[in-house]
């Protein structure tokens, strides 16, 4: 956007609005004239400010029935901030998100991230994998062990033994639907989703085949929630290789 626009305005004279408030005043009868003249205010909370996120991500980031929109609640704040900044700057491409965030300062994006990171709604019920037993086996293999011969680290080696992520910027992988996970792995492979260099996830995704993506997505979406959902503290384990988003 590089041009000039416009406004939302009302031409209605103020006295007319006061007139509408007349009945309210007569009900209140006493005292609070100053209050009654003040139009209703939006609640001064972060949840209210972020209602724009709710139709796709849920009011507290718990996710919605749309399989392509991810849950945000409980993800590490650093991860969420990185994503919001990447959307704002157009490095992560999804036009509706790029548009919404374009003119918001980074401090506010961090406030948004902290809000969603602090929400702890339960995970949605896991979904049984809609794929063959061989694919399930492949998925489990990649998630837990990786594939040394193809230079593929296990998902768990970075996203944690319980797949709940690590502070400040490695996301958990549970509570997401298969179609979202495979769309994101596809976006990493095709370069429409990128992160700070060295872009570890792009390197990993570049080694994945279509079948790998399908298998990993189906199995991740079928995993039940562990007892403790929070991302583990920073430095709980070492990463197999350097990652720009998570300096060690």
């Amino acid at each position: 956007m590089r041009a000039k626009g416009d406004s939302v305005q009302t031409a209605e004279p103020r006295h007319k609005r006061w007139h509408l408030l007349g009945p309210a005043l007569s009900v209140l009868l006493i005292g609070s004239a100053a209050i009654a003249q003040t139009p209703e205010q939006a609640p001064d909370t972060i949840q209210e400010r972020l209602l724009a996120c709710a139709p796709c991500h849920g009011v507290i980031g718990e996710g919605t029935s749309n399989a392509y929109f991810p849950r945000l609640a409980g993800k590490p704040a650093g991860y969420l901030t990185n994503q919001l900044v990447a959307f704002r700057n157009g490095r992560r491409r999804y036009p509706p998100m790029n548009y919404l965030l374009e003119y918001l300062p980074e401090e506010y994006l961090a406030v948004m991230a902290n809000y969603f990171a602090a929400q702890k709604p339960p995970l949605p019920a896991p979904v049984a994998p809609d794929t063959s037993p061989q694919m399930v086996k492949l998925g489990e293999q990649l998630i837990e062990k990786g594939d040394f011969n193809r230079g593929l680290p296990a998902c768990m080696s970075c996203h944690g033994p319980n797949l709940t992520g690590m502070e400040p910027a490695i996301p958990g992988l549970l509570g997401l639907r298969a179609s979202y996970i495979s769309a994101q792995l596809g976006a990493w492979r095709y370069g429409t989703r990128t992160a700070k260099a060295p872009d570890c996830m792009q390197i990993v995704a570049g080694h994945l085949t279509e079948d790998d993506v399908k298998a990993v997505a189906a199995v991740l979406a079928s995993r039940p929630a562990p007892a403790k959902l929070d991302p583990v503290p920073k430095g709980s384990y070492g990463l197999p290789f350097p990652c720009g988003s998570q300096p060690q």
Partner: peptide
Amino acid sequence: RMVLNGGFPPGTSGNPQPYGMPPFAQS
């Protein structure tokens, strides 16, 4: 377009944490 795309007013020093309007294009 406001109904389809929603939007945030710009974040400024006078309004650092603007309230957003949800997009309705998808619903």
